[in-house]
Design a protein around this nucleic acid. Structure first.
Lengths: 139, 139
DNA sequence: AATAATCTGGACATAGATGTCCAATTCGTC
DNA sequence: GACGAATTGGACATCTATGTCCAGATTATT
């Protein structure tokens, strides 16, 4: 459904949102989210480029969210690391089709649109506030 | 959204459904759907194993659907080549979570469920009957 | 200023998805 | 039965996603 990288990015963001007033290092986030730390480093860079987290180098540095969890959607995070790709032109490259998708690709794109819509409405704050038997990520 | 392999499988099935009374060879399907023929051969095998097409070897052989297009759903085809994976246990492998997904994974699995639901309701016959400016796959 | 902690960027390694190829098998036609 | 058409199965090649590593830059502390 979503890539491994996207899964990692979401875990990291949720973790930061749970502790949104302090910065955390890659190693700390890695430990809490069980994401390989070297790889997480890459993912965090991508999140930084997309302006979802800001980073501070050096001693006492780390990552922190750039905005409140209720302003941050799952879709934004996915798009930062592994963009949702809508189908805009005929995947067969048929000139005659061009921008008019056939029914098959309309259907697939329709499903993609539903996902996009669903994830655009789901904020990180929603995740944190949802009653559940398991605290997100940890124990 | 869906893998390349799944896209290819859907094209092949739709093509066969459009001509559901005769058999077509890999080469013919490949030409019509613009799927690399050697790779399509593999995809067709997978569809055969899943009992969505039956094959006939030798002269005059080829592939034909095993059932009517209105009995065949997109989900079945996806599951034949690239199964929709629901999240059933905590992806972090946290013992304490076990089968109780945290809110993040509930959300992701929820989206997966929506896709599963959508595609389980969409039959190949639906695709063929939908009014559209572009005939599926061809011209 | 020296040091240690931390991110940044990029090179490299591994694994899985995608794609190609060929020998073996099956089947219809002659 | 010989031949050509077609699938089957598996080996191999290539590309992309995932994962590891290290040198360089930045920062707080001393």
């Amino acid at each position: 459904m979503i890539s491994q990288t996207a899964e990692y990015a979401l875990r990291a963001i949720v973790f930061l949102a749970m502790n949104k007033d302090s910065a955390f290092t890659t190693r700390q986030i890695s430990k809490a989210t069980r994401v390989p730390s070297a790889y997480l480093s890459k993912v965090m860079r991508a999140l930084g480029k997309a302006n979802l987290v800001k980073s501070q180098r050096g001693f006492g540095g780390g990552f922190i969210l750039t905005k409140a969890p209720d302003k941050m959607t799952i879709l934004e995070i996915l798009n930062a690391v592994d963009p949702v790709r809508r189908i805009r032109t005929c995947p067969l490259g048929l000139e005659a089709h061009g921008t008019n998708l056939c029914a098959l690709h309309k259907e697939i794109d329709g499903a993609t649109a539903i996902i996009e819509e669903t994830f655009s409405k789901a904020t990180i704050a929603d995740i944190l506030s949802k009653p559940t038997k398991s605290i997100p990520l940890i124990g």
